[in-house]
Nucleic acid binder design. Sequence first.
RNA 1: GGCGCUAUCGUCUAGUGGUUAGGACGGGGCCCUCUCAAGGCCCAGGCAGGAGUUCAAUUCUCCUUAGCGCUACCA
Length: 476
Amino acid sequence: MVFWELMPRVRFAPSPTGYLHIGSARTFIFNWLYARKNNGTMILRLDDTDIERNTQVSIDSIFDGLNWLGLSWDEYYRQSERLDLHKEMAYRILAAGAAYRDFTPAQTEEEKQEDSGPWLFHPGMRELTSEESDARAAAGEPFVVRFRVPRGEGKAVKFKDSVFGDQYKKADEIEDFALLRSNGMPTYHMASCADDVDLKIDHIIRGQDHLTNTFKHVLIFEALGEVKPKFAHLPLLIAPDGAKLSKRKHGPVVSVTTYRDAGFLPQAYINFLCLLGWSPKNNREQMSRQELMDAFTFGGVNRSNAVVNFSEADPIDPKAQWLNGQHLRTVELAELLPMVRARIEADGLAIPEERFGLIVETIRARYTSLHDFAVKGRPYFADDFVMEEAARERLDEPGARELLRELGARIAASAEFTEASVEKILRDLATEKDVKPGVLINGSRAALTGQAVGPSAFHLFMAMGRERSVARLEGV
RNA sequence: GGCGCUAUCGUCUAGUGGUUAGGACGGGGCCCUCUCAAGGCCCAGGCAGGAGUUCAAUUCUCCUUAGCGCUACCA
């Protein structure tokens, strides 16, 4: 075996008929984890053979979401540019006798409703002689090309799934599925298998909704004389009501960009998605991309569908929010700062460069979203912030305002401005005026941030800087 | 209807032929404390139901039920 044969080639193959769905994103992530862990090749392939339903908006949404997640791919293809290949392979199967032309007109919706039993093939079409078939095709009669599923031979179609184990199905129960439509376009099954062969995909990792389709795909690979790839099917992501996630029914929670727009860190969201249907089996929850990559195995993938826990009242899964908070307070500051900066600047606020890192360090432990820095954190970046009721009550305490103004004056006059110096000034003042330090401490927080709760007051002074601190104390 | 897949706290999950069925989120409480958050500790909460195999089943087998998927000239 040569070295490159050890390096897997995997693909993520979305069809651009909507926004980037969170289930799709998770499929991408698992493919990516597997490829990167094994020095493999990650391929992005747009399965855009359904020209009726494809939209540019959808393609943009897929790239949007993927770019946000920050996961890379090595090769990029569009099925619509590879139709000749798909057709060529379909005709190769036809020529080999493993497929046949079906001249039956397309069924209408009502006709489909009527037949209740399992449909396997249209009578008479499998038996057409090649002369008759060629003649009718030459005469311009429309047809679909169907796979001639082996019947009455007791053939079993089987494959081994890396997640679901050995899979087996009687060929007699598989319908003669279409390879080519009457307009000459390949179907999903044909295009997908042709590309998987041509692109030398050796491990197909996709949603469990394709588990039963895989029997058809195995038949195609066999008819093409190709070694079939390995398969790994992932459990589906479903809504709390048990239904599959759909935009129509569940709204924006199904779109990746919703989480970006909700102030998620991409690594936190990746972490969350990985925990849906996969487990490192060691009780680890918060994990970096590298840790996820190291820990990923198909053995850790679950077989049952996972519920994304959202509601009308709280559209974000609480565990996702918690994870975001965990990442927010543990990620390298240098990595966090640009993301916070972008969020702050989006609100048109000015960043005090010399204290930016300190501010973020001071407040990040109490936030769970990037938005919090601009909303709850507004007093750190702007002077027009709202004074909360609870904070006003602190200031309204008897004598509080005078004390705070005095504190401001003393801080302004002090030669030094450090946590220790401010603390000394504050405590000395409290002793001198015979009040509890808490009055000044809590009062300072209220004056500086307009909030009754928040970081330690002495950290606050440093984060706000001398000028802003003094101004706010003297302005109470 | 047919075929397939699945079934452990509300949710995500670990787990074993013998365990007080473990962890996390969320909920409740306590501690810490200048407030809040973080952190620490504690509490409530679960093996879908029924048979069978076995000395012993949450674990193995079968049935039922439920959910999901496929059953298109969608992907």
